[in-house]
């Protein structure tokens, strides 16, 4: 049972670690309705968990009185995920570096920075959205897109 085009699911979760699991389960249900393969669904679940965790931890300082909003927009070709947080920690990070695990193990690098790295490697598109200052939605918005159908023909043409 595939949904018709442009079905939208909107969640509002407390900004408290652990609630990202609700977004994780919800996105899995939506992705299954879109016939995503199970390994892709696992990727999406990890990506949304990390994005929501960042929104909770940094975007709203773990203040459970605040909310993180997750908007899942599904159509025949892709799943579009928008995560909004209050943005109390200021501007979101720019650029993602590969985590230096060796440096962390040697105690030369601070632990962390893996969430955004994982997201960028697990979804097709990911990044912070520039929010119009006149927009009612203040704060940070992080968008991820995952395509249901890989364009194999295009890949073959490129070879």
């Amino acid at each position: 049972m595939r949904p018709p085009s442009n079905r939208v699911v909107e969640l509002k979760i407390p900004s408290e670690l652990g609630y990202e699991k609700i977004a994780r389960e919800a996105v899995a249900m939506v992705a299954r309705r879109l016939d995503f393969e199970e390994d892709k669904i696992d990727d999406i679940k990890t990506a949304i968990s990390e994005a929501c965790t960042n929104a909770i931890r940094y975007g709203s300082g773990g203040d459970s009185r605040m909310k993180v909003v997750v908007v899942l927009t599904a159509d025949d070709t892709k799943l579009d995920i928008l995560i909004k947080d209050p943005g109390i920690s200021g501007d979101p990070p720019i650029g993602v570096s590969i985590p230096d695990i060796a440096g962390m193990v040697m105690g030369e690098e601070r632990m962390g920075g893996m969430g955004l790295f994982l997201i960028r490697n697990l979804v097709d598109e990911a990044g912070f959205v520039e929010v119009d200052e006149e927009d009612d939605d203040e704060g940070n918005q992080f968008r991820m897109v995952i395509y249901r159908i890989q364009d194999d023909d295009e890949d073959e043409d490129e070879e």
Partner: peptide, 19 residues
């Protein structure tokens, strides 16, 4: 079970100790 980047960081901490 669910493992996230914070969980991976715990394991990296253990790797550090184990070395």
């Amino acid at each position: 079970d669910y493992i996230n980047s914070a969980g991976i960081a715990i394991l990296i901490g253990i790797v550090t100790e184990a070395r």
